[in-house]
Design a protein around this nucleic acid. Structure first.
Lengths: 211, 211
DNA sequence: ATGCACCCTGACCATTCGGTCAAGAATTTT
DNA sequence: AAAATTCTTGACCGAATGGTCAGGGTGCAT
């Protein structure tokens, strides 16, 4: 009996190994691109034989699909604080903070996402057309409400969102360039805070929100 | 005699063919990434046999290097209007316009550049460390002078530049995502102007420049 | 203890890729 | 005109890649 429930220990072990492979794959896909990444490189990064990786993820595309899907979830959840906030100062400020934090902690994921979209989103086009469109329209409505309430300037909510996405993700996707321009050293804790403050200050003032 | 001067007709023909290959390569590298692009795809796009492409560019890396180098030049020249302007309203406004125009007319080039930097700039790292560092420091000085003259807020010039780069290039690099969010159709002339205006309005107001 | 389902991996395969080459065509120089 | 240089291209090659598979190992239920 109980034919459906697999042993708990085994299930955990399987999941743990999948996570190890997914993390290695995210790193390699970010560094090499989809075409440049090889299953051997991913297997080496995960410290497993290549055939073992293929046991958990049958094809390179299947593995890539799951990496991209994971990042998309993180991306969407970054705006949890958006709607439930009182006004633009708190809502947009927190959203910028959240997205900057993702750039700092998950730069590889951000690069994989950027690469996927840059190449025409061959894998996650359906998500863009459904989830992302809904998500965006919902945020645009929130911003329009703030504008109608006189809490901020009547700017284009859509282009404001693009600016926030672009600027925050730039710190991950172009992290190498930023590091080169920072005496070849990664941003320190203070420098990250300076970046966050700069982005928030300019954008919030730019849309007429007092801080 | 005249052993050094090659025939003009032949030289022109060679240059023309190189340009055809470079344009095809820029498109394919943008669509497929360096690893995903194949010499056969590039040759097909240029409507030439693969061996003929190898006659003009001995290796894939050499071809890629020239594509990236071309884009870097465009990138730098976009700021010609920066220093010779009277103040931030004109200088930064014109710079944003120029960069938005590049995103509109050379999206493939922008993507190749983004891809190169995202993967650690393996080919043009030396340019980043020399030309780009000098270029950036020079612009930072100009902005600091404007701040000292009280023409704009005392924001971080460095992060302002990052924001301009990120936002303007976003319209090329993430053009597919923007198109998906625009009812699956490319931005019209009016929509491009709306985008330009939005970016300039928010950034210029954000740094305390009256327009 | 024994059967069973899941896990592991070295060896292997077909395909594709970047790059070469030789032989001929076209164009310029003498 | 004929020699010399440059251009063109089909055929080919070694290396690398994604994916397969057989055979053995491991841990759980009965």
């Amino acid at each position: 009996m109980n034919p459906n429930a697999a042993p708990v220990r085994k299930q955990n072990k399987r999941r743990e190994k999948e996570v190890v492979i997914l993390q290695a794959a995210e790193k390699i896909f970010a560094e090499e691109g989809f075409g440049g990444a090889t299953m051997q490189l991913i297997a080496d990064a995960a410290q497993l034989p290549k055939a073992n990786v293929h046991y958990y993820f049958s094809t390179k595309e299947e593995l890539y699909r799951q990496v991209v899907s994971n990042i998309f979830d993180v991306w969407l959840q970054a705006a949890g604080s958006f709607e439930e906030s009182d006004g633009p100062a708190e809502g947009i400020g927190a959203y910028i903070d959240a997205k900057m934090e993702i750039s700092r902690t998950r730069p590889a994921g951000s690069k994989v996402w950027a690469s996927e979209v840059m190449h025409g989103a061959p894998i996650i086009q359906d998500y863009l057309e459904t989830t992302l469109v809904e998500w965006t329209n919902s945020r645009i409505q929130a911003i329009e409400a703030w504008i109608a309430a006189g809490l901020m300037d009547p700017i284009s909510p859509r282009h404001l969102l693009y600016m926030i996405w672009a600027t925050t993700q730039h710190y991950a996707d172009f992290g190498h360039q930023i590091q080169t321009l920072n005496h070849n050293s990664p941003l320190s804790e203070d420098e990250w805070n300076r970046a966050k403050d700069s982005v928030k200050t300019i954008i919030l003032k730019g849309i007429g929100v007092a801080t």
